[in-house]
Design a binder for these strands. Structure first.
Length: 459
DNA sequence: AATAAAATCAACCGCGCGTTT
DNA sequence: TAAACGCGCGGTTGATTTTAT
């Protein structure tokens, strides 16, 4: 681990702590808070503080952060301690630039989740939500400034394709689509090319089975939820202890991807299976009945599992930019497309230089948000038209070619673009089987899912 | 070399949710 | 049942570093 907490630690030390200002003096930018806690220090942490916190966590474990101040004498509020630990001090943190794979993963995740940084972080071992958030925000700024859209075309294609089944399912089942989330204007997502991947260390990353047989389930859930717009208020925010996420195997209850073992999964299973309205892919559904129907199945992260469908409730329209509210995607769904992470097998410390990601675009989005909503809208229209005309099955590339995406993005041709990361259709790329990978925590996750018909299965 | 602008990063804040009392 | 508490998340801010002029 060349790029772990130690690095951040060093950086910290070099940055603000070489002279180790006394934290009780609030020097070096630190101030004593007047509000929440009397005499609580704010601002940058010192190495001394870090040491205290680390020591405390070693002794007492994570959690109970408000007790840190009492027991360790640290003049920091619990919140601050938790944050410091989570973002900088906990073991196995990976620091440094995001790898190309991670960047792509973030984009994919963001396309599906929106600004769910913590959840995204769960898919990027060693990365923190804050890191991802910062990365994304910078990226957004950069792209905004350049007048570019946020998502690479391949992501658009995948998500669009994934959306089809669910959307039509909702239509078929009489669900009223969420008009309010379906924008009237449609604009495409000009292509972003990730040239770094061309010469990448293998195609493992692209083996992500975004479109594998169970993927449709994922989107089914996601957009089914979106269509309903309901959130299960009781299960909405079950949060996963970070230790559970990042220290797979150390807990019996959950591994990195939320291996629920007991009641939660049962509850979730019932919730999901009973509320399942439409499944374009019953086979995979059987294989992965959403969130733990399979014994020991893994729910990514936090038991946010059954945020939707079951309980009518408030419509959460919180995402400023994206597609899925919390209720609109499903961690279990993400299981469907999240293959064993290449991050587990590719040296995570070979970082790509920032310039390796080259973003190109010919068309800018009129707005910075709702891009996939646009996509969804167009998908709905298209699919609906197809259904009405009884047309034969579309390929994703067909869909894209004929979709309004291309109206706004005439130059896009992901399926034939020779400069495409893999020299073939992004869809096909993501459709391909995941190379067998062994050894990472995700393997356990993967294998336990028991996707019998899925080439990514490691069984 | 100096300055400004942009990018990056760390940390804080407010809010919401779940649990405990 | 309601209030208090603890925790985590996402948004935002401010400091620092890097890059461009």
């Amino acid at each position: 681990m060349s790029n772990t907490t130690n690095d951040s630690y060093k950086r910290m030390l070099s940055k603000d702590q070489v002279d180790s200002p006394s934290f009780d003096e609030g020097s070096s930018g630190g101030t004593m808070s007047g509000g929440g806690g009397i005499g609580l220090k704010k601002g940058p942490w010192t190495s001394a503080e870090d040491a205290i916190l680390v020591e405390y966590v070693k002794k007492h474990g994570e959690g109970n952060w408000n007790a840190v101040q009492k027991h360790s004498g640290l003049s920091r509020c619990g919140k601050s301690c938790r944050l410091r630990w989570a973002n900088h001090l906990r073991p196995n943190l990976k620091k440094g630039a995001f790898t190309a794979e991670e960047e792509q993963m973030i984009i994919e995740l963001h396309a599906r989740m929106g600004n769910k940084w913590a959840r995204m972080a769960a898919y990027l071992p060693g990365r923190t939500d804050n890191e991802i958030k910062n990365y994304w925000n910078t990226r957004i700024k950069r792209r905004q400034r350049a007048g570019l859209p946020l998502y690479p075309s391949d992501v658009r294609v995948r998500v669009s394709d994934e959306n089809q089944d669910q959307i039509m399912g909702d239509l078929d089942s009489g669900d009223k689509l969420h008009n309010e989330v379906l924008p009237v204007n449609v604009c495409g997502f000009p292509e972003v090319q990730f040239e770094a991947y061309k010469g990448n260390t293998g195609a493992s990353f692209y083996g992500l089975p975004f479109l594998d047989s169970s993927l449709s389930n994922m989107l089914t859930q996601g957009f089914g939820s979106q269509s309903c717009g309901f959130i299960n208020p009781s299960l909405n925010s079950k949060r996963l202890q970070e230790s559970d996420i990042f220290y797979p195997g150390s807990h019996g209850s959950m591994n990195m991807f939320g291996n629920f073992s007991n009641d939660p999964s049962e509850k979730i299973t019932q919730t999901y299976c009973s509320s399942y309205a439409y499944d374009p892919d019953p086979i995979s559904k059987n294989q992965v009945p959403y969130g733990g129907a399979v014994s020991g199945s893994h729910c990514p992260i936090n038991g946010n599992y059954s945020t939707s469908r079951t309980f009518p409730g408030t419509v959460k329209m919180e995402l400023p930019s994206l597609q899925y509210s919390e209720a609109q995607y499903h961690d279990a769904d993400l299981d469907s497309w999240l293959a064993p992470s290449p991050l587990q097998t590719v040296d995570p410390y070979i970082h790509s230089p920032p310039e390796t990601v080259s973003m190109q675009s010919e068309c800018s989005s009129p707005r910075n948000s709702g891009l996939l909503e646009d996509l969804l809208y167009e998908s709905v229209k298209k699919q609906f038209a197809d259904k009405c005309s009884n047309s034969s099955e579309m390929t994703p590339s067909d869909m894209v070619d004929s979709s309004a995406l291309n109206v706004c993005d005439p130059g896009w041709d992901g399926s034939s673009d020779p400069t495409s990361p893999l020299g073939c259709s992004p869809v096909s790329v993501f459709n391909e089987s995941t190379p067998p990978m062994n050894g990472g925590p995700l393997d356990e996750f993967q294998s336990s899912k028991g996707h019998s018909g899925n080439s990514k299965s490691l069984m």
